[in-house]
Simulated assay, not measured.
Amino acid sequence: MKNLNEYFGSNIRDKNIVVTGGTTGIGKATAELLVSLGAKVLIFGRDHEDFNAALEEITTNYPDAELYGAPADVTNEDDIKKILDIVDLEMGGIDILINNAALSAQGITDSDDWKYVIDTNIKGYIDFAQQAVSRMKSQKSGHIINVGSMSAEVRNPESTIYVTTKTAINGFTAALRKEINPFGIKVSLIEPGAVMSDMQPGTKEEQREKIEKMEMLDADDIAMSILYTLSQPKRCDIVSMQIRPLLQII
């Protein structure tokens, strides 16, 4: 067995990584972890304050970090072009895509903005995956991680729209892997249970209490799962991973 520092860092160091929805929650925790291992990371999110706060916190913790990004919305074509320009002109390409930008939603009887949620949670994933693959094909390597949700399995009736989007991501990931595997590109699905985030009901303090009770995960738990997935040798392909809080009975 290799030295663990080398094991977890060898596939990360100096890689160009894009994290959609990288300004809060799972995305931010993942970006900070990858930066700490020497990756060049691009983050973005639609909220300007969240973006600036994430940028400041990560660069404060890691002054030598190569961190890129801008406020951007995955449903906006001009914003997508802005992010891709940074990828191509400043970073010099993309090795890893972590599709994470998503919104919560209730059922069809309670949701008025469900079309925007669909565009964010499904179209946003497809758009960035397509752009990543177009850049990865020539290098015969790459890794796309789609962050899904256990909601695709639980199918809670109070969140029909969200369940629909995460079920779609489950199927999209499985088919995409078969499509682009011949190009040497890995595709993995990470499906968390309840994770502390802005998408969860309740205050931050209430969510921290759930973490203490082992009824909820911390965003760092998912970041570590993503790191483990990315750290495997080329011969080893983690297709899907489900991570649940110990006492969240699903």
Rank of each mutant, 00 (worst) to 15 (best):
Ala39Asp: 08
Thr60Ser: 14
Lys2Val: 11
Leu33Val: 00
Phe44His: 10
Ile98Arg: 02
Gln131Phe: 08
Thr20Ala: 02
Ile122Asp: 07
Ile108Phe: 15
Ala174Leu: 12
Met224Gln: 14
Val18Asn: 04
Ile83Gly: 08
Thr109Asn: 13
Ile226His: 11
Pro192Thr: 05
Thr20Cys: 01
Ile83Trp: 08
Lys166Tyr: 04
Asn156Arg: 10
Thr59Lys: 15
Val239Gly: 04
Ala31Leu: 04
Val133Phe: 01
Met214Leu: 15
Asn121Lys: 02
Met241Glu: 09
Asp237Tyr: 11
Val195Ser: 00
Gln232Asp: 03
Lys140Arg: 13
Ala175Trp: 06
Glu158Asp: 14
Ile180Asp: 05
Asn181Val: 04
Tyr68Ala: 01
Lys213Leu: 14
Arg135Leu: 10
Pro245Trp: 01
Leu230Trp: 08
Ala31Pro: 02
Leu176Lys: 07
Gly184Phe: 06
Gly22Ile: 02
Leu97Trp: 01
Leu4Gln: 14
Pro192Leu: 04
Tyr7Ser: 11
Gly193Phe: 03
His48Tyr: 10
Glu212Lys: 15
Val87Trp: 05
Asn11Phe: 11
Phe128Ala: 03
Asp113Tyr: 08
Tyr125His: 11
Arg235Gln: 14
Lys178Pro: 02
Ile94Asp: 00
Ser104His: 09
Ala72Asp: 04
Ile118Phe: 06
Met216Ser: 07
Gly107Asn: 15
Tyr62Ala: 05
Ala105Ser: 10
Val133Arg: 01
Leu217Tyr: 04
Glu32Arg: 08
Thr173Phe: 03
Lys15Tyr: 05
Gln200Trp: 05
Trp114Ile: 11
Ala101Asn: 09
Ala65Val: 00
Glu158Met: 12
Lys186Gly: 10
Leu89Asn: 15
Leu247Arg: 12
Phe128Ile: 06
Ser240Gln: 13
Ile80Thr: 14
Ser111Arg: 05
Tyr7Val: 04
Asn11Pro: 08
Ile26Met: 09
Tyr7Gly: 05
Ile161Ala: 02
Leu33Arg: 07
Tyr162Trp: 01
Thr165Asn: 10
Asp88Ile: 15
Val133Gln: 01
Leu89Asp: 15
Ser231Ile: 08
Ile122His: 04
Asn3Gln: 14
Ile243Cys: 01
Arg46Ile: 01
Asp220Lys: 14
Met241Ser: 13
Asp50Thr: 14
Ala29Asp: 00
Ile222Asp: 04
Glu32Asp: 05
Lys140Cys: 09
Asp221Gln: 09
Ala102Gly: 11
Asp198Arg: 15
Gly38Thr: 03
Met196Pro: 05
Asp113Phe: 07
Ile222Leu: 09
Leu33Lys: 09
Ser149Ile: 09
Arg177Asn: 08
Ala194Val: 09
Glu153Ile: 12
Asn3Thr: 10
Asn5Leu: 11
Cys236Tyr: 14
Lys82Ala: 14
Gly27His: 02
Glu49Ala: 15
Glu205Thr: 07
Glu191Thr: 10
Gly93Trp: 04
Pro192Ile: 09
Ile249Asn: 13
Met216Tyr: 07
Thr167Phe: 08
Lys137Pro: 00
Gln232Cys: 08
